[in-house]
């Protein structure tokens, strides 16, 4: 049982990271019906910016562990958000009236560009997070010995998701985002500045993705410039699993995928780990063609 719960908590931590990235995919999709293939690379930027800021500013030495990491998270989120907004302006806005797949190719091009920029700056090798920033504490919880980092990641991702959910559901701006996702034309007629909504979505999604990148760096200790594709693909799978465009769906899908993958790798086969996620996705889509929480949209005639 010990092994099972270790895998379960590990799955929840990875799932939380997937969910944070998946939120970026699903929010952009909700408003623009665009699969932002460069989103995974913004996540990688989060990891690299985190590393650079961490080592160059020595935040945890100056401010202590808790405050230092908090400041670091906020800085990374802010910077990646700006990057997301630039991406939207440069690669997606000119294509807003074009066929949807053209924007997908533009997104793929942007993804290649971002990835190779990182490679030129940092080199192609794995980069290692310093391992002395975090106290290597193990928490004794519910009869389990859990690494502190794992617990923090689960808590932080759940907190961010809760904050986002409240923001989308309870504030005026959140209502505007939901309205623009349902019907852009009608939202515009109701006086909502759809361009601002889109900009906002491209700030919030990348911010969450950047935070997820930082988490991966802190959790696994090493990062690579191509990891955005793997995580991005998993997170996109999670978003589809939950029903793309649906914000709670991305959260559920992300956590579920993380847990399934961790348990599958532990009990079925580690060699097939990456295939398990896709097999589950295909099986679920056969039964529920629009994902777990996706609405059945009637085709307009």
């Amino acid at each position: 049982m010990e092994e099972f719960f270790q895998q379960l908590t590990n799955g929840l931590a990875v799932g939380g990271i997937y969910a944070l990235i998946a939120l970026g995919y699903t929010m952009v999709y909700g408003v623009l019906k665009l699969i932002n293939f460069a989103h995974g690379d913004l996540f990688t930027y989060g990891a690299y910016l985190g590393l650079t800021l961490l080592t160059s500013l020595a935040l945890t030495d100056r401010l202590g562990f808790a405050l230092g990491v908090l400041v670091l998270v906020l800085m990374v989120m802010g910077l990646v958000a700006v990057l997301g907004a630039i991406l939207e302006r440069a690669a997606y806005r000119p294509l807003r009236e074009s066929p949807r797949l053209s924007a997908v190719v533009s997104a793929l091009g942007a993804s290649i560009f971002l990835q190779n920029t990182l490679m030129l700056i940092y080199g192609a090798r794995f980069q290692v997070y310093p391992d002395n920033i975090l106290p290597a504490t193990t928490l004794h919880l519910f009869g389990l010995y859990l690494p502190l980092m794992r617990v923090l990641i689960v808590l932080a991702s759940v907190a961010m998701m809760a904050a986002l959910y409240l923001f989308i559901q309870k504030t005026r701006i959140g209502t505007a985002i939901r309205a623009a996702a349902i019907d852009q034309g009608a939202a515009r007629l109701m006086g909502i500045d759809v361009n601002r909504v889109i900009l906002l979505v491209f700030l919030m999604g990348p911010a969450l993705g950047g935070a997820a990148g930082l988490m991966v760096g802190l959790y696994y200790g090493q990062i690579n410039f191509t990891m955005g594709w793997v995580y991005g693909m998993k997170a996109f799978t999670a978003a589809i699993l939950g029903g793309i465009g649906n914000i709670p769906g991305a959260m559920v899908g992300g956590l579920l995928l993380g847990v399934i993958e961790a348990l599958g790798a532990a009990y079925l086969s580690i060699a097939w780990k990456d295939a398990i996620a896709f097999l589950v996705l295909i099986l679920i889509l056969i039964v529920r063609p629009t994902g777990l929480l996706g609405e059945r949209v009637a085709d307009k005639i």
Partner: peptide, 12 residues
């Protein structure tokens, strides 16, 4: 890097 940039520009 140039390739990615060209893709975006061509689509735009």
């Amino acid at each position: 890097l140039v390739f990615g940039l060209v893709m975006v520009v061509m689509m735009v």
